[in-house]
Amino acid sequence: MVVAMRTVLDDHQHPHAFPNPSGTHERWHFVAPPSQHPGTGDPSVCTCSAAMLVDGWCEQHSEGRVAGLSVSSAHLFETLDPHGHVIAHESVTCPTCVSAIGSHGYCDACHIGWRGGLAYMTRLTWLLASGSRTSPADDVAHSPEVGGVVGNVRIADDAILAEAQRAFSVLRSAVEMCDRCELCACAMVYDGTCPDCNITYLGGRPPASSDEAIAHPRRK
């Protein structure tokens, strides 16, 4: 498969551009797809531009993109899992997950979000899945009609937008954390425990109290 990119041109004389109803012209580019998993792509091809569009990984430059943000840690990119997982719904036994599958909700017990039938392993990627891709050329100002943006993802619902912005802020911190401890960075976005530092994270930071940790246990 390929990733198709539409470029809108204001040069009406461009011989290969197709007119569209707005009077501008556009041209379609078909570019090599990025990989979804570090280590599985073609290192001879740069897929950065497509990775920006589909939250992919460029093998050549060892860099992934999540909502447009550069993520150069393969472990962190895999943890974020921006594309979701396929899990046969009939095999899911957690009642909260079963309910969440139908409502595109999030299971706090399993820390799995469901949207469009797919399971998302981090809260951020579940929230981002509710949005649509935008670009820096779009009007990014928040408005009640179109919502706001998180990175390069437009989210219409204000409540989801606010939560996604918080989660995206955690991701930014996690990217910075990678220089010090890559697994801590992963645990920050996953609400997990770093096996090297033995630090458990909740919402991007260690729980303020044991009560807070107990209130949000992982199902496992």
Partner: peptide
């Protein structure tokens, strides 16, 4: 030729989607 990116690119097809991991 003057070319100006007016609007965003858009993706039509998600490449080699595997919806996988190891979580």
């Amino acid at each position: 030729m003057h070319r100006h990116l007016l609007a965003t690119v858009s993706s039509l097809a998600l490449a080699s989607t595997s919806f996988a991991g190891s979580h």
